[in-house]
């Protein structure tokens, strides 16, 4: 069963798993995890030690090596959510629905990281944690939209209800982000020109560090995505299995057979027993 999930179980995962995996790790994720850790070590070395401080921003520029990749990854996560939701609504593919859910969780995480690192960068650079800049405002709205999706996806309701309602929100996520972004852009630029942005010239090593940041955070994203996908998949399995077990128990009561806990795969045998 572990290898089956690792390859990505397309279509609706069903059936009993007596040998259900006890962890969401596999060889692939372990290799990925080690690579990510090594990458983070390298990124820290590059970002904190080897690269020079910026002429204008000083040491604050070092936050950029995490901030910019996080923002990009957050957008990729949102895109996955919309894609997964669309394919769930269209093809009824639970695999894609779970990818969308995992994508939204990670997008929310990285949006929060983007906001926090941005604020930490803003305090020494602008003197304040927050300005009503178009980019900041629309990122905050993005976080709220993602939290709304996650709130619906985690409702205590049956899987089809949760998944379908969340998928409608997920489908609208990217259009909403675009339209919110557009309106906030206009809002801040009709009255005052946006004055803030990275207008730093990057020298070779800084550019390389930023690139490393993209690779490392990208690896981290994939690692998280696989794990969160498997956790979500297992959660649905547990819910299904609980229901199957309950039905089996009721049936066993009805036929007077089977006294112990009934395993779903024994359902047919339990019914055939005298």
């Amino acid at each position: 069963m572990t290898t089956q999930i690792a390859r990505g179980n397309r279509g609706r995962p069903t059936g009993s798993d007596a040998d259900a995996p006890t962890s969401t790790g596999s060889t692939t994720t372990r290799v990925l995890g080690v690579l990510t850790l090594l990458g983070f070590a390298g990124l820290l070395l590059l970002a904190l030690v080897l690269t020079p401080a910026d002429a204008n921003q000083g040491n604050a520029v070092r936050i950029m090596y995490v901030h910019v990749p996080s923002a990009t990854i957050a957008y990729i996560g949102c895109f996955l959510t919309t894609l997964g939701s669309a394919l769930y609504l269209w093809k009824r593919s639970q695999w894609w629905e779970l990818v969308g859910y995992a994508g939204a969780e990670i997008a929310a995480l990285f949006t929060a990281v983007t906001l926090v690192t941005g604020m930490l960068w803003g305090r020494p650079t602008w003197g304040v944690y927050w300005v009503w800049d178009a980019r900041l405002t629309s990122t905050a709205m993005l976080l709220l939209l993602l939290l709304g999706y996650l709130a619906v996806r985690r409702l205590p309701a049956d899987y089809p209800v949760r998944a379908k309602r969340a998928s409608i929100l997920g489908l609208l996520l990217v259009p909403n982000v675009i339209i919110v972004r557009q309106s906030v852009d206009w809002w801040r630029t009709l009255h005052q020109k946006a004055t803030i942005g990275f207008d730093t010239k990057l020298d070779g090593l800084m550019l390389f560090t930023l690139f490393t940041g993209f690779v490392v955070i990208g690896l981290f994203f994939v690692w998280l995505l696989i794990h969160r996908f498997r956790v979500a998949w297992l959660e649905e399995q547990v819910a299904d299995q609980g229901l199957d077990a309950a039905i089996a128990e009721r049936r066993a009561e009805g036929t007077g057979a089977g006294s112990g806990p009934v395993v779903p795969s024994n359902l047919a045998a339990g019914e055939a027993a005298p």
């Binding site: 709220l144 939209l145 939290l147 709130a151 609208l172 919110v180 557009q182 309106s183 906030v184």
Partner: peptide, 13 residues
């Protein structure tokens, strides 16, 4: 929670 962030463009506009 669901509606107000989505309505931000309408409020601004």
């Amino acid at each position: 929670l669901l509606l107000l962030p989505v309505l931000a463009p309408v409020l601004i506009g």
